[in-house]
Design a binder for these strands. Sequence first.
DNA 1: CCCTACCGCTACAGCGCTGCAAAACAGTGT
DNA 2: ACACTGTTTTGCAGCGCTGTAGCGGTAGGG
Lengths: 342, 342
Amino acid sequence: MRDATLRDVAELAGVSARTVSNVVNGYARVTERTREKVEAAIQELGYRPNVLARNLANGRSGQIAVVVPYLDTPYFAELLQAIIPRARERGYNVLIDQTDGDPAHEREMIRRGARAFLFDGMIFSPLGLAQEDLVDSDPTLPLVVLGERSSNGVFDHVGIDDVEASREATAHLINLGRRRIAAIGDQPYPTGEAAQLRTLGYRQAHADAGLPVDESLIIHTPRFNRADGWGAMRHLLDRDDPPDAAFCYSDLVALGALHEILDRGLRVPEDIALIGYDDIEEGRYANPTISTISPDKVAIATTAVERLLSRIGSAEPLPGVEVRAGHRLIARQSTLGRAATA
Amino acid sequence: MRDATLRDVAELAGVSARTVSNVVNGYARVTERTREKVEAAIQELGYRPNVLARNLANGRSGQIAVVVPYLDTPYFAELLQAIIPRARERGYNVLIDQTDGDPAHEREMIRRGARAFLFDGMIFSPLGLAQEDLVDSDPTLPLVVLGERSSNGVFDHVGIDDVEASREATAHLINLGRRRIAAIGDQPYPTGEAAQLRTLGYRQAHADAGLPVDESLIIHTPRFNRADGWGAMRHLLDRDDPPDAAFCYSDLVALGALHEILDRGLRVPEDIALIGYDDIEEGRYANPTISTISPDKVAIATTAVERLLSRIGSAEPLPGVEVRAGHRLIARQSTLGRAATA
DNA sequence: CCCTACCGCTACAGCGCTGCAAAACAGTGT
DNA sequence: ACACTGTTTTGCAGCGCTGTAGCGGTAGGG
């Protein structure tokens, strides 16, 4: 049987369709009596508003897109898990899209190509596109970009202070007496902005301590995943002068590196100390547990949703804002040793 | 400026709106000449079809919902990653929803409550609802349920043969000479169907080998995550007669258990062998690497999408089908030892 | 040379809802 | 009884698209 429409309900309740709409939306003033009649009719017919029609009528889709490179990267999965309920609270559905870091796909998304009108705004974590590519975005698309970037004044950025966080992570290793500290994850090309900020922090920490940086210890990796960390550490351990610590640009990199270190019968942190970045749950269960930089994911998610919704709600385009969420260093076994946590 | 509409394009091209629609959709026969005129007009105006209006007009949303308990559980993240591209190929967007295993939320989703009309069908991985609760689902909702369940003939199920896979996992441990094998993850209540099938396989393997089952080694856990595995293993190791192996109902459980075992200075697999379930990437990087049952996730994703779309496409309700995807046992260090993989 | 067939295109209605403006109603004061 | 105010309810138009029926025109068959 056909689904009941507003008009069906109106007829049964003996009122106009508009009044039913008012009841459904809690709009305007409706007499208690009328409301009851309408609600009874809704019950009886099992009426459910047609979201599609509503969306068309008021020109909004009630959906926001969250675009990330990979869904199975724990950091993004955890972030999404925080974003979804916040969007839902505010009456929005979340449309998730994974780009695999493909620049073409990312570009298509920020231009809203075929999916125009399907979402009212977008939270975007770029991977294949550099800062400068983002200017191609559909200017009418409310956009919040995740990750620290130099502000271009057009859309919002939400991220933690990557340079400072990286400086702290590296300083932590230096304070433990390490002197040959590898940096795993640098990406010296346009799309590697996040990585470059971390390298900058790494250098700052060395400068602060008056230590030189051994450039050969800065390892480039295409991504921030386990395989990259594993490969980088293989490379480092094959050298005559292996490092005594590593600052890894993600926890996954650290976990990959850890795997290789233990495989060779070396000990963490005795032989090599490790610190990661992201504070994913996996790092809390690794053996040893992984020290890390913990970004305030809930704050990032909340802020991103808030900023996006205020952009969507605003008639005039708002100026781009740079938001810094908090972070903290969590020292675990991979730097402090097992004894310290027993 | 207002977005260009079909009518605007029609006017500029000097044809009817319907013709523009035909060009856009590749429908019907259109003269080369007309097509070119229309395409030029589309270019000039930067016209993009309004998906909302299209959806309303033809009564389909072009979206499917994928409902999982947790987005940050690697198994689901990996599965989603496989589902999304397959749906996209077929022209569908994926709307992801996480329920936290909340029965009320799950019930609301299968009844399509407020989000009716927003998706044309649903792939559902239930956690808080038992098989019998699924009959409450909106009968007009094309539904594919993930995980093996007894067929009720109404909707499709896609999953692997849990009993057989569990039997194989347990038999693997038995063949290695283990005799006190714990089973971690049983859930002896209505919503624990998947867990119960695994327990059944565990028992079968024992029966096949003519071995008795020590009921006290079957450990119940509320979920299948790291904390559960960790807690269960704590409990087991505090006993006077700890096990010499454990069949864990998920890789996360195995990783949690592993953490506790290593924390106590015991060795895996020498003291306790471990096998998990799901084959998540994390297990391939753990130390030691985790033996596991590897479900064919790509097959599950592909089949689920295929079945769902054929349900959506069909005028008549199709009978529910039970689909078994493949699985295989992958033996790694946590059962074979490190030497075997060197 | 007429009749049918088919092609390319068009006009109109309608998907189910909401914005808007005006109508109906109720209550108050004169 | 009547104008006046404020509240509740209504009707209509329209969001941008597609389904359906049908238009005129050219082509082929008898």
